[in-house]
Every structure is written in structure tokens, then in C-alpha cells.
Write a protein that binds this DNA or RNA. Structure first.
Lengths: 341, 341
DNA sequence: GAAACATGCTAAAACGTTTTACTACAGGCC
DNA sequence: GGCCTGTAGTAAAACGTTTTAGCATGTTTC
């Protein structure tokens, strides 16, 4: 049950393995292999359905044609959809994907990087956790191609592909203001990472710009690793603590889902008694009653850009890093449309 | 930037690479390497943070400690959640996962198998498409460890882990009948594969057993690869075509979602004018108004079983294949509770 | 007629492991 | 002294590629 090797082809063609390798790697011209021999080898290879042994090739060249994809949580709709795009795009370049979820836990992330490293992936797509900067720099100093996604480290000059989170939050908030909401809160994750920071900043900026008083009591920052029950408890506690609250912006998809659940269990009517905007689109947001306004990320474009940038690093080592910031789209639905009383 | 190799350790310890290999593979006793030397090597390896080069090891042993996971669609909530469990479980055994989505397209599936094969994965977890039986048999005759999931081929003696789809559909239908629904339809996917066939069979059996007249007009079988728009159009056409219809069972999660959308766009009130049961749980089903009754799959258990069965095949080649059929849980919610008029 | 060059191909090393077959030495036994 | 047994290790091959350096042979060039 062995596979076909280059030696088998060589034997059949009556040439050396070297020649076969040259031909099959498209170096026939360069290495002055005659058309005749070249054709013959191609034919035999095709007939035997030769597939190069990637391990042997990898061992020799150091290239595995594999990339590592580290996401926050592959079970999360956003990351799962993105993973699929990445997989498809990478495939176009002949790369396979090894993936892993960090659960936003730095230790888990380090473990994943470790495994990917000794599996010799050629490049990395990383959704970094908060203290992963040292490891990223380590990879960089080892000249490993890498692209950060969803968030990045401002103090590190690396490639990244992210959403314009600031604009997402700013637009969402401005939209709520334009609808006439007066007291708008934000529920976010306690994180200093760019994606969350930018969303909070965008929110605050929109309020300030429209002369809406802002103070810290309008912001609730929850720990990432709470379970659903705790999210709900905390959100309810927060929402009832804000006086005259009339709208709330949930800064991640799972917070939005928990938010919907919480608000309903409080007996408040979304869209009537409280305006709501979520982050990332989701079937639930589309089909909820009322439907939920959200900041939607262009997932296909994000995935394509990620792979494109990574392939650039892979194929042109040493070329300058690239930063891509994509525009979000505000999908306006019923949850944020103030009904004229 | 080379990694640490067994040679580096050998040099430092003043022994041969062979000895290092023996010690590091736990064969010290067996190969009569002294405690002294053994300890020394261990220490040096730890100090240098030696990680074996998986490519070299794989090339020599034929084992890559990698498994291939082929799902229908990694962006689908069910498969994404399962993928995460599989990843975590496999990790416990030191295995990494290479994954791919078939989109239920046999050609794509064959392509994935091809790639996984020449990447030398040690074992396969496969959600088969309809004509993949030949390829499965090919893998089997090459003694490749494999586990089918979600569905299987009755005529092939392979390991598999699936839901008791028959019971799932049977329970769902019986529940609707017990609620007093008289004319119950099913919307399913046009597929002869076990998972869809069993769901349809369970549905029909429940009707017959409760002496509810059944005929083909109660069944709508849609092509898998329609887009959302077409699903909606077809479902609406079907639902309005059935006289006195008072309940409907959607046999997959995405059909359920499309079903909700369709019914609402028809202006029918779910739970009042029409009973509804879906398949696979989902945030949308939990939070929809009204909430949606569904047949829920025990995802964690499925994932654990899959990996366990695969590891058994991996570690005990030639041992008999194992079939695991797990029980679904009917999650009863508002969409199927008939309000007494 | 020798040097220079072009042509077409190959031998052998290397990548980092694992594993088989062996060596070298010591001690015990008859 | 010869033979066996046991102990502690090692040399070398093998896995399937890629790649460097080079070997014949024939053709120009002056």
C-alpha cells in the first residue's frame, strides 16, 4: 500500500530520480532536460497518479504547504464562517489549514503556537489574545510569515486584517442618536485589545460628537469567560442600574444574544422600550421579533484579504507588512427604529 | 533558526543519536540504556526544549499524528460546534486536525480525501456524501482507520457515530400528534442518505402508528444546494399547497431557519396557526418568538465518541469496527404547544 | 589540436527521525 | 581457553524528496 514515489517513475522512464524531480518541479528547461524525456516523465507520472510525499518534501525544503489558523472560538458563527472562507482561499494556493481555538486564553494560544511550530506550518493566521505580543515578535524575528486578524498590537509592526471597529461602533451609536435615543449604554468585554477598545472609543466619540453626556456608568465591561447564565445576570443588573436608559449597544455577537435574552427576561420590549444594536450579523438577529440592528462584518472580504496578505508574505519574504482595515456595514432593522409615539 | 535536533542532544550528552532516540521514546529499559545516561538525556532534552520534527518522524514511521475531518459545512453551527469538540478531544491524544467542507458535493469530498491522503493523515472522520462509498471502501481496503459521522452506508461495515435520527423524527412527530395536531407535514432534503431517510421514516412511522393518514403530499423534499431565497420560495409553495395543514417538521437546522422565515412571510402565526418542530438546537430556536421546539443532538457526546472510536482503530488496527448510535433529545418549546382554543 | 563552451543528464548528500543489526566488553561456567 | 550470557551502547540504513556539484559527450573557436 505504499504510494508511488519518484523512484518508481525514474525506473519506468529509465532515468535518474534527479531528472524526474527536475521535470516534475517545472525545472526541465532550466536544467536542460530534453523535451522527449520531459514528456515521457510527465506521462508516466500522470499514469501512475504520482503525488509527491509532502513529508519528504517538507523535510527537505522546510515548506509544508500548511498554514495555521488560530481563532478565538471555532464554534462562534463569525469565526466558523471566516474559517470556511480562509480554507477555500488557501486551497486555491495549494495550502491546507490546521486550526485551533484559543478561548481567548493566552496559555491555550501559546500551546497552539507551539504545536503549529513543531508541525512546521509555513505561515500563521492569528487572532491574538492579550498577552501574545511576545510570541508574535518571536515569530517575526524568526521571519515567519504571519497575519493577525480581528485585532492587532499597535506596538508591533505586523500585517493584519481587521474591521474598522471604531467606525462600526460610531455608526451604530450615531444611528441610535439619530433615531432620537437619549441615554445609550454599551455592554462590552473587559479587554484592552484593539477590537474592543476601538468599539468603545467609537461609541464614546459618537456620543461626544453629538453632545450627549457620557459617563462611565453607561459602560459595562464583562469578563470574556463567563458562562451564559452569568452574562445574563450581569447584563440585567447593569441595564436596570442605568436611569432612563433607552438604548443599548452590545459590542460582540454573543453579548448581543445574551442581551436579547436578558432584556426579554426583564420583560422590556425591544424596539419599543429599549433600542438595541448588536455586532456581527446572525440568523437570530435577522429573524428575531423584532429583528435586530447590527454592525455586520464583510466576512468573505476579510477572509480573502487575510489569505492574500499571508500569501504575499509567504512568496515575498521580507516585503513590508500590510495592514488592511475593512469597513463595516450597519444593517438597520426594527430593534433600533424608534416608533414615533 | 533551525530547531533542536536529536543530534544536538546526542552531541551534548556525548552519546549517539540512536541512544537519544531510544530514551526519548521511552525505550530506555527495553534497549538497556543505563539510568545515568537516560536521566542525562532527559535533562538535556528538557533544557533545550527539544520537540521532535514531525515531518522526519512521519517520513520514517508513516505516522503523522494528524487526522482529517471532513464535514458538510464548517460554517453550519452543528458542524462547527462538533469540530471544536473533535479538535479538543483529538488534542488529548496528541493529534491535530486537518479539516474541510464538502458542501455535500461528492467531487469536493473526493478532492478532500485526495489531499488528506497525500498529506498522510493517520485517520479519517468523514461526513460522507452520497456517492462516497467507493472511496470509503478504498480507504478501508488500505486499512486506513476511519469513522463516519452524521450518516453512514448500510452496505459498508465501517465504524460510525450517528444520531438515532429515526427516533428524533419519531419523537418530534409523536409530540406534535399528542398536542392534537391533525395534519402534519415534513420538509426535508432530497437525499437517500441514512440521516435523511431515517428522519423521514421516523416521521412516517409515527403518523402510521397513531393512525394518522399519510400520503406523499405531506412530504416536501428539497435539493440541498438551493440558496436561501429558493428554499423560502419552495417552502412557501409547499406549505400553501397542503390543505388544512396545522403542523410542520423541518428535518435540518437550515431548513428550520428557512421554514421560520417562510412561514412568517406567509403571515401565519407560528404556534397558533401552525405547529413547528426543527432539527438541531440553535440560538435562534431558543430565542425566537415563539421559541422553537427542536430535536437536539448531544454534540459533546458525539464528538467524544467519534474520537474515541477513531483512536481505537488507530491503536488497535484490525479490531472490529464500532457503531455508535446516540439518542436525541426533544426540546419542547412554544412553537409546538397547541393552545387550547 | 587544444581550449572553451553547450548539452543532457546523474551521483550523492542532505533534511531528522526510527529501527535493525551489530560491536565491545565483562563475567561465569565447564 | 573456549563458549555462553548479559550489559550498554552504536553504525548505518531507510523513509522520499530536493539540490549541489559534476560527468560525459559533442560542438565551436582560434
Amino acid at each position: 500500500m505504499k504510494g508511488i514515489s519518484i523512484k518508481d517513475i525514474a525506473k519506468q522512464a529509465g532515468v535518474s530520480p534527479t531528472t524526474v524531480s527536475f521535470v516534475l518541479n517545472g525545472k526541465a528547461k532550466e536544467k536542460r532536460i530534453s523535451e522527449q524525456v520531459s514528456k515521457k516523465i510527465q506521462k508516466i507520472a500522470a499514469r501512475l497518479k504520482y503525488k509527491p510525499n509532502q513529508l519528504a518534501r517538507g523535510l527537505r525544503t522546510g515548506k509544508t504547504k500548511t498554514i495555521g489558523l488560530i481563532v478565538e472560538d471555532i464554534a462562534n458563527n463569525f469565526f466558523a464562517s471566516l474559517a470556511k472562507v480562509v480554507e477555500d482561499e488557501a486551497d486555491k494556493y495549494g495550502y491546507k489549514v490546521l486550526y485551533g481555538s484559543t478561548e481567548d486564553n493566552t496559555e491555550k494560544a501559546k500551546g497552539l503556537l507551539e504545536v503549529l511550530k513543531y508541525r512546521q506550518v509555513d505561515g500563521y493566521i492569528i487572532t491574538p489574545t492579550k498577552n501574545l505580543d511576545k510570541e508574535i515578535e518571536l515569530l517575526q524575528s524568526a521571519s515567519k510569515p504571519l497575519v493577525l486578524m480581528d485585532r492587532y498590537f499597535p506596538h508591533i509592526n505586523s500585517s493584519y486584517v481587521v474591521l474598522n471597529n471604531y467606525k462600526g461602533a460610531y455608526d451604530a451609536t450615531t444611528h441610535l442618536i439619530a433615531q432620537g435615543y437619549k441615554k445609550i449604554a454599551i455592554v462590552t468585554i473587559a479587554s484592552e485589545q484593539t477590537q474592543m477598545k476601538d468599539r468603545l472609543d467609537g461609541f464614546v466619540a459618537a456620543l461626544k460628537e453629538h453632545k450627549i453626556p457620557f459617563n462611565k456608568s453607561l459602560v459595562k465591561r464583562l469578563a470574556f469567560d463567563l458562562d451564559r447564565e452569568s452574562f445574563n445576570t450581569e447584563i440585567k443588573k447593569f441595564l436596570t442600574s442605568v436611569k432612563d436608559l433607552d438604548a443599548v449597544f452590545f459590542a460582540t455577537n454573543y453579548l448581543g444574544i445574551a442581551g436579547i435574552e436578558s432584556i426579554r427576561s426583564l420583560g422590556w420590549e425591544i424596539g419599543r422600550e429599549i433600542g438595541l444594536v448588536g455586532f456581527d450579523d446572525h440568523d437570530l438577529f435577522r429573524l428575531h421579533s423584532p429583528s435586530i440592528t447590527c454592525v455586520s462584518q464583510p466576512i468573505a472580504s476579510i477572509g480573502k484579504n487575510i489569505v492574500e496578505v499571508l500569501m504575499n508574505e509567504l512568496n515575498h519574504p521580507g516585503s513590508p507588512s500590510r495592514q488592511v482595515v475593512l469597513a463595516p456595514e450597519l444593517v438597520v432593522r426594527a430593534s433600533s427604529l424608534k416608533q414615533k409615539a
